[in-house]
Structures are given as structure tokens and as C-alpha cells.
């Protein structure tokens, strides 16, 4: 790990003033569950680390009629346990609770979940976000078991965020703050599939801090289903979050977003269309799952993920209406 300066601000204003506009100069430390490994592997070598854990204004979950405000420092465990979130924003609670590592649930923050770097082993091995060696993309002919089945490159990593799909499904926004001011961005636009090595996978600028997540008043039914192989520390092989607006027992509006299948949370428009006007049954859920993966472009070793994504959509839909009229 390269030596760095450690800054410990107590306000957001102080914190953003410590961030440099150029990439690679500074990093923001919250739970550290991802950043510390990146630094140990010399993937991130910041000159200054800005610890934001002492900034009170980044804490807390606040629910109101207008929706939910989640401070960036809220841990995944707090989110999973919050009664309001569990009752009305189930897809989010499911996603947070699904993280099997107690250490990551208790240390990892919601802000960090959205800002964590891809887990692609070529990226972590030093071959860059697009995973190239002397210009040759390594993923298509390589060990792409856990890589993207949507998007078609040149980025083949999968977004590692657990909350991303649920937040996109719920139409959430994030607040990004810099010394110059703040802006709100839809979570859907927060994630980017980079086309070149100089683009990051999120729109957060180096001198910005993600300060809070804003979730609009909930859809009636939502759920997240993740396919994980293990009960212990493991990343999902595929996941899906759904948010349904119902008119009686019929779907008036559906948002279906898959996780761990593309460089960004992947919206399954075909599944949403297939669900419109339907009641959720095993058959309609299965059909929606199939529709969700119609356009999948699996790589040489990850065709199995197509099936997993389809099953995740089906099971998330059934989970969303479980026990409800």
C-alpha cells in the first residue's frame, strides 16, 4: 500500500474541500470494505484519503410521505433492519440483507455499495476496467464465468452494487456534493458502461461525495432475488429487483432490473412489457423471466448466467406478491 495523507473532516463542506478534481489523487473512505483491498493491490494509490465516517450529516434513514432519504454512511445492516424499509421498500431491504458477510453488512455503507469498483478479476489484476493486455480484450476469450451477459462490450465487468438494481427499479436518485455545489442524478444514470479506459463506471466526479440516496414513495410491491452459490461470503451470480404498481391484482406498472449481468443495473424492458396488465402467477413470472433475457449475449463461459438471470426475475416477481392479495 502506497503511503498517503489521511484527512479526518467532520463536515461535508470540509470533506469536499479536501478532494482533488483529478482522478487518482484522492479517495473517499467510508466502510473501507472495498477501498482498502484496492489500495493493498495498488489498483488505487491515492495521495490523500478523506475519511468521512465522522460526518454526522451523512448518517441516518428518514422516511416521509414523499419517500425515503438514506444517508451515505448508513450501513447495509442498518438498511436491512430498518422497519420502514422492510415494510415499504422490500427490494432494498432484501438486497442489503442478502449480503452474506456480516463484516461487509456491518462495515459496508450504502454510499460505498454504489461507488465500489467492479469485482472483475482482470480489473483487480491490473488490466484496467476494459481488461485489455497490449490492446487485446482479455474477457471474450478468457475466464468470463462471472462476467456480463448484456451490453456487448467493450466493458464486460458486472456492476458489483447490491442496491443498484433495486434503486433503479424504484426510480431513486443520488445527491452528489462537491465544493462547487450539489447535483441530483437518477441512479439509472449514475451507472455507466464505459467505452474507453478513461471513463469510470459511475458518473461521480473525483471531487464529489455521494451524500444521500433519495427514494420516491414506494411502489406497492417490490422484492429482490439473488442467486448466490454460498451462504458464506459470496457475490451473486445474478440478481433481479422488481417494483410493481398494482391496480387490484393486475400489474399497472412494472420495473424489472437485473444485477450482476451487465456493467450497469440492467433494465429488462421486455419483461416490464410482458407483465403489463397481467396478474403475477408462476406462468406470467416465468414468461417475464424469459422475456428479460431474450437479448442476452452470453460470453464463451457464462451461458449459464442467462438461466440464472431469468430465474432471478421470476423469483423476485413471485416474492414481491407473496402473501399479498
Amino acid at each position: 500500500m502506497q503511503a498517503f495523507e489521511y484527512a479526518n473532516p467532520s463536515t461535508l463542506q470540509e470533506a469536499v474541500a479536501l478532494l482533488a478534481p483529478q482522478r487518482g489523487q484522492t479517495d473517499v473512505l467510508a466502510g473501507g470494505t472495498d477501498l482498502i483491498s484496492l489500495m493493498k493491490d495498488y489498483i488505487h494509490t491515492p495521495k490523500r484519503l478523506v475519511n468521512i465516517k465522522n460526518i454526522q450529516e451523512l448518517e441516518g434513514i428518514r422516511a416521509s410521505a414523499g419517500g425515503l432519504r438514506i444517508g451515505a454512511l448508513v450501513t447495509m445492516d442498518e438498511l436491512a433492519r430498518n422497519a420502514e424499509v422492510r415494510a415499504s421498500y422490500k427490494a432494498l431491504a432484501d438486497a442489503a440483507a442478502g449480503i452474506p458477510s456480516p463484516q461487509i453488512r456491518h462495515m459496508g455503507t450504502v454510499g460505498g455499495d454504489l461507488c465500489q469498483r467492479p469485482r472483475c478479476w482482470y480489473f483487480r489484476g491490473g488490466f484496467g476496467l476494459l481488461a485489455t493486455d497490449n490492446g487485446k480484450p482479455l474477457v471474450p476469450d478468457g475466464e468470463n464465468h462471472y462476467h456480463a451477459i448484456f451490453g456487448g462490450g467493450p466493458a464486460y465487468f458486472v456492476s458489483a452494487s447490491s442496491l443498484g438494481p433495486a434503486l433503479v427499479a424504484m426510480g431513486a436518485r443520488v445527491k452528489l456534493v462537491s465544493a462547487k455545489g450539489s447535483r441530483e442524478v437518477a441512479v439509472k444514470s449514475f451507472f455507466v458502461a464505459p467505452k474507453d479506459e478513461n471513463t469510470r463506471e459511475i458518473v461521480l466526479r473525483p471531487d464529489e461525495i455521494l451524500s444521500e440516496i433519495l427514494v420516491p414513495a414506494p411502489a406497492v410491491h417490490s422484492a429482490t432475488y439473488e442467486v448466490r452459490q454460498k451462504e458464506a461470503l459470496d457475490w451473486p451470480l445474478a440478481a433481479a429487483s422488481v417494483a410493481l404498481t398494482m391496480k387490484g391484482s393486475v400489474v399497472a406498472g412494472a420495473k424489472v432490473v437485473m444485477g450482476h449481468v451487465a456493467p450497469i443495473p440492467w433494465e429488462a424492458a421486455a419483461a416490464e412489457k410482458a407483465l403489463a396488465g397481467k396478474t403475477i402467477t408462476a406462468a406470467s413470472a416465468e414468461a417475464a423471466g424469459k422475456a428479460a433475457v431474450e437479448d442476452a449475449q452470453p460470453l464463451s463461459r457464462n451461458a449459464y448466467k442467462v438461466q440464472l438471470a431469468s430465474v432471478a426475475v421470476k423469483r423476485a416477481l413471485l416474492e414481491a406478491v407473496k402473501g399479498k392479495a
Binding site: 452474506p100 478479476w121 489484476g125 482479455l138 478468457g142 475466464e143 451462504e231 458464506a232
Partner: peptide
Amino acid sequence: LYEQRFMDGQTGRMLNPNMEFYKLAGIGD
């Protein structure tokens, strides 16, 4: 159920020399 070394034929490297993607059973497994 879990353990496998992923060797990249292109670079010749082991891609999962860690305890994250070199998957190990936990107590719940």
C-alpha cells in the same frame, strides 16, 4: 461444491488467488 483455480490461458495467471473468488465453504454451507 466450490473450490477451483481459474487459470487464464492468455496471461498464464491464476485469476482468483484470494479467498473471495477462490470460494471456500462457510459454516452455513
